[in-house]
Simulated scan of single mutants.
Amino acid sequence: TYQLIQGYDFLHLYQNNGVKLQMGGSDQWGNITTGTELIRRKAQGTAFALTVPLITKADGSKFGKSESGENYWLDKKKTSPYKFYQFWLNATDTDAERFIKFYTFLPKEEIEALIEEHKTAPHERKLQKKLAEEVTVWVHGREEFEKAVKASEILFGRSTADDLVSLDEEIFLEIFDGVPQKELAKTDVLGINIIELLTEKSEFLKSKSEATRELKGNSISVNKEKVDDQYSAVESDLIDGKFLLLQKGKKNYFIVKAI
């Protein structure tokens, strides 16, 4: 039925809009040629099909919501520049080598040099970084690309507290998507004892003894800055004027929203 509907759609476009060419991935060849045949028989006309090899990922799967559960859009209202950048940055080595040829305008010689350089030090992910930069700048501009890079550095711990505080709410919440949150009055956040914030106020840690132990072990950070004094008061700047990021160890995060 799908094939028949797509064929009729082509016929309708041919008769009403003068459309003579339908383009698509190679998996659409049968659907498109159904349309060209229908146009020949019903309208005694001539129409054309043009397909290109389907772009697949290293595992053979194609892009699309049906495969991955999530689409990546050019419109930043549907896919933020940060997520868009992360998509290309997280490409496998095999995919990055193919995608940089498809989706950038870099000269062939530069691409070949990048591929060879990547092979000698794949852990540096230079190929993925260049791919992500080129495509993100092309689609969203240099400024949005630089914001995405800063956000990525914050997530992986290669940034300063000042970088974190300068983030806007949208990017901050995207970086720490899924991290538990609690709303507190500003008077219950700023100026109070760090142990009180970690336990009674936020309930991030279960007890004062746990908070004391983690502080002595240098495991606690507030807005990416280490705190080891159990008697200190919280004086950090709020992220975008409303958030405080608590952290235990490397991966255990908690967000306090001051209202």
Rank of each mutant, 00 (worst) to 15 (best):
224 K>W: 03
247 Q>N: 14
65 K>N: 09
31 N>V: 07
105 F>H: 11
55 I>R: 00
83 K>S: 14
176 F>T: 09
45 G>S: 03
143 E>K: 14
158 R>F: 05
189 V>H: 10
147 K>P: 00
79 T>D: 07
39 I>G: 02
155 L>F: 15
46 T>N: 03
150 K>A: 08
45 G>Y: 01
144 E>V: 02
142 R>Q: 12
248 K>T: 03
81 P>T: 11
13 L>Y: 13
190 L>F: 01
206 K>G: 08
131 L>N: 02
133 E>S: 05
184 L>Y: 04
37 E>I: 08
44 Q>G: 02
6 Q>T: 04
38 L>M: 15
230 Q>M: 09
4 L>T: 07
143 E>P: 00
234 V>I: 11
22 Q>A: 15
228 D>V: 10
201 K>F: 01
46 T>V: 10
215 L>H: 08
38 L>D: 00
194 I>P: 01
209 S>E: 13
234 V>S: 04
94 T>C: 02
195 I>W: 00
121 A>W: 07
194 I>F: 01
231 Y>C: 00
93 D>L: 08
175 I>N: 09
190 L>P: 01
35 G>V: 05
40 R>C: 00
87 F>I: 11
77 K>G: 12
196 E>I: 01
233 A>D: 07
29 W>Y: 14
136 T>L: 05
61 S>Y: 02
15 Q>W: 09
184 L>W: 08
126 K>P: 03
104 T>G: 01
166 S>W: 07
106 L>G: 03
140 H>V: 06
10 F>W: 11
109 E>I: 13
50 L>H: 04
179 V>E: 09
206 K>Q: 14
53 P>I: 08
51 T>Q: 04
230 Q>L: 09
168 D>K: 10
82 Y>A: 03
121 A>E: 14
67 E>A: 15
56 T>L: 05
179 V>I: 14
41 R>A: 10
131 L>I: 07
55 I>G: 02
103 Y>F: 12
252 N>T: 12
195 I>P: 02
185 A>K: 14
15 Q>F: 04
18 G>S: 12
3 Q>Y: 07
11 L>D: 05
107 P>W: 08
136 T>C: 05
114 L>H: 14
173 L>D: 07
250 K>M: 03
254 F>V: 11
207 S>E: 07
70 E>H: 15
23 M>L: 15
202 S>E: 06
130 K>R: 14
103 Y>Q: 04
35 G>H: 12
73 W>M: 12
257 K>F: 06
247 Q>F: 06
192 I>F: 05
146 E>I: 01
167 L>T: 11
95 D>M: 05
58 A>R: 00
167 L>A: 10
238 L>C: 05
42 K>T: 05
253 Y>R: 06
196 E>G: 00
139 V>I: 13
224 K>M: 13
84 F>N: 08
192 I>W: 01
132 A>H: 11
81 P>Q: 10
78 K>P: 08
108 K>Q: 10
93 D>Q: 10
242 K>M: 00
11 L>K: 09
41 R>P: 00
5 I>C: 02
116 E>P: 02
5 I>V: 13
232 S>H: 02
220 I>M: 08
247 Q>I: 01
205 L>E: 04
110 E>M: 14
119 K>L: 09
187 T>Y: 02
26 S>P: 08
